[in-house]
């Protein structure tokens, strides 16, 4: 257990180093003049002038050599500071804190919704593998996964906001505004997790221990709960870790579409505006969340299957 935690800690430190350095390098090699880019985001296209860009260059010291800027960032990171946004001048940590909350709510509710939709569907399909319901679920999953989140989001807006007038198409504040963006993400997630769950359940259903449990006369319910669910849960939970990737990229698109003030929406703007400290900070937070999520998945899997921890 300690080894696992230590390993993940080292991983987190590596993520910080690589993400910080990579973001810095990537943003620097983007074409165009950083001072002009930052000024464009600050003052808007109509008020952008070369004079404004020069003022930005002076204020932020953008003409300093790059090793100095990168080392300064790492130095500050070691002390727990993420620097200030180049566009707004506010501390990155404050900006991220205000963006991370909405994004976490969105991601968490999307994950829960996807489990609510995906797991029961996967369970039923797996138990009746090959049935009409199973095939229907497969078609639905393929269709939903094939639709880009942008299109899916617009379709949901048309149905729930325009036709039914139940939910607002954009905004932030209450659960009503969050419903459509999280459903957009959840459907994409559930499309795959339902199939993973279905395959896991079907595989467990075909094992000898499962058949033996039924042969020895256990009621169906006990067979499923004692021998089926736990064994089928491991691939499903492992897959949840991988779905974080879909969630993170989905959040970027969905937040922009639904005008949702989260970290994905901000990241798009930060990259366009060349706000290096914000890009580094946001990518760092996302990277660390990924490490944390994987740690959670590992721990859960060990809880479900003690053999995983024992052998090593």
């Amino acid at each position: 257990m300690t080894r696992l935690l230590l390993g993940r800690l080292v991983q987190a430190a590596l993520v910080a180093l690589v993400v910080g350095g990579l973001c810095f390098a990537l943003v620097r090699v983007l074409p165009g003049d950083a001072a002009f880019r930052i000024a464009a985001d600050r003052y808007g296209p109509d008020a952008l002038t070369a004079q404004a860009a020069e003022a930005v260059r002076q204020e932020l010291g953008l003409d300093r050599p790059w090793p100095e800027l990168l080392l300064r960032w790492f130095g500050e990171l070691a002390q727990g500071h993420l620097g200030n946004s180049l566009v707004s001048g506010e501390p990155v940590s404050e900006e991220l804190a205000s963006q991370l909350g909405p994004s976490l709510w969105l991601a968490a509710s999307a994950l829960v919704l996807s489990l609510l939709i995906g797991l029961p569907l996967g369970l039923v399909s797996g138990l009746r593998a090959g049935s009409g319901l199973d095939r229907l679920a497969l078609i639905g999953a393929v269709a939903l996964r094939a639709l880009p989140p942008f299109v899916l989001g617009l379709v949901l807006m048309l149905v729930f906001s325009i036709r039914l007038e139940w939910l607002p198409p954009a905004g932030y504040g209450t659960w009503r505004e969050m419903a459509l963006p999280s459903l957009t993400l959840a459907l994409g997630l559930a499309a795959v997790s339902s199939r993973v769950a279905r395959d896991a359940v079907a595989a467990v259903g075909a094992t000898t221990y499962y058949r033996f449990a039924r042969l020895k006369g256990l009621p169906e319910r006990a067979v499923l709960v004692r021998h089926g669910l736990r064994n089928a849960a491991i691939p499903v939970i492992t897959y949840l870790g991988l779905q974080a990737v879909y969630l993170i990229e989905g959040v970027v698109v969905v937040e922009s579409l639904f005008a949702y003030p989260g970290i994905g929406h901000a990241l798009v703007h930060d990259v366009i505006a060349r706000d290096v400290p914000m890009v580094q900070g946001a990518a760092l937070v996302m990277g660390l969340m990924f490490v944390l999520l994987n740690l959670g998945v590992d721990l859960l899997c060990r809880l479900l299957d003690p053999r995983l921890g024992a052998g090593r």
């Binding site: 906001s161 607002p168 905004g171 579409l257 005008a259």
Partner: peptide, 18 residues
């Protein structure tokens, strides 16, 4: 005031009455 960058979303917000 709500800033909504996507033009499609802005139109839908008008139509839905939000």
């Amino acid at each position: 005031y709500l800033a909504v960058g996507q033009g499609e979303t802005r139109a839908l917000m008008a139509e839905s009455g939000e």
